[in-house]
């Protein structure tokens, strides 16, 4: 009985949390897409600054990680494929797994570690030092001022980063293809491109936009609900990372299911 009531409590807490996320994400989306037409201009300069942080500065580490992931995928696939003499399909395996799944997912996880945590820490610190209260007393909406530029930067930069990650993954695979599987570089790339349908890339990019929304909403919500004291900022940051990773996987599952059943009909 007690277990049931605890379970019920956790479920309602979880739903309430999702509700707050949706409300925050909805307001950020309102200020991004509707606000500019109602005299609430976008803060483009802040958004560009955020885009630099979220996107451009993530390129080196993301490139390295996805290159290695591509290489690992090629090795793992070749392990099985060579038993059937089908090692030529390595390029296909790498290209499809990267664009459909691993490209968006690895990108999201790198961005959570770099930016989702930073959002929570930045906004959490501002909460502790009463800067969020100060914004409100100046009649400036913290969501408009702080969350919207991050939201805009995320939904633009995450798909861009994902495309980059896909490319780097395929390049990583080509290292194996060229050295171990009798591909020339050009033939490997051509074979990768031939194996992809536009749908593979587009579904990956749609997912990455949703990941961007999720990461921003969780990072900013955790920041805004920071309690008093410096240790609470650390707690918010940790929670932002853990919850973001979990929710990104959930969103991934939901959209993969959706694409699976839509493509069936």
């Amino acid at each position: 009985m007690e277990f049931a009531s605890q379970l019920g409590g956790s479920v309602t807490d979880g739903l309430a949390y999702l509700g707050s996320l949706a409300s925050l994400g909805g307001r950020a989306a309102y200020y991004t897409f509707v606000g500019p037409f109602q005299g609430k201009p976008l803060r483009l300069q802040r958004a560009i600054g955020q885009a630099m942080d979220v996107g451009v500065r993530a390129l080196p580490i993301l490139s390295l990680i996805t290159f290695f992931i591509g290489l690992i995928l090629a090795l793992q696939a070749a392990y099985e494929l060579r038993r059937f003499g089908a090692i030529n399909f390595v390029s296909t395996a790498v290209a499809i797994s990267m664009t459909r799944e691993l490209g968006p997912l690895i990108t999201a996880i790198v961005v959570i570690g770099r930016s989702g945590s930073a959002f929570a820490a930045e906004i959490g610190t501002m909460k502790v030092t009463e800067e969020i209260d100060a914004l409100e007393t100046m009649a400036i909406s913290p969501v408009h001022f702080l969350v919207t530029p991050k939201f805009l930067a995320m939904i633009i930069m995450l798909p861009c980063l994902t495309i980059w990650a896909n490319t780097m993954g395929i390049l990583g695979g080509s290292l194996f293809g060229v050295t171990q599987a009798d591909f020339t570089f050009v033939r490997y790339i051509r074979s990768s491109i031939d194996s992809l349908f536009l749908r593979d890339i587009v579904t990956g990019l749609i997912k990455s936009v949703m990941f961007g929304v999720t990461i921003t909403a969780v990072g900013c919500l955790e920041g805004l609900s920071t309690g008093t004291g410096a240790e609470q900022v650390g707690r918010s940051t940790t929670r932002a990372v853990v919850i973001s990773i979990f929710l990104v996987v959930v969103v991934d599952l939901v959209f993969t299911l959706l694409f699976f059943f839509v493509s069936e009909t």
Partner: peptide, 14 residues
């Protein structure tokens, strides 16, 4: 009396 953890007054804004 100290500023407490609230669900975030910022969130309530629209």
């Amino acid at each position: 009396e100290a500023p407490r953890q609230r669900s975030g007054s910022a969130e309530r804004r629209s």
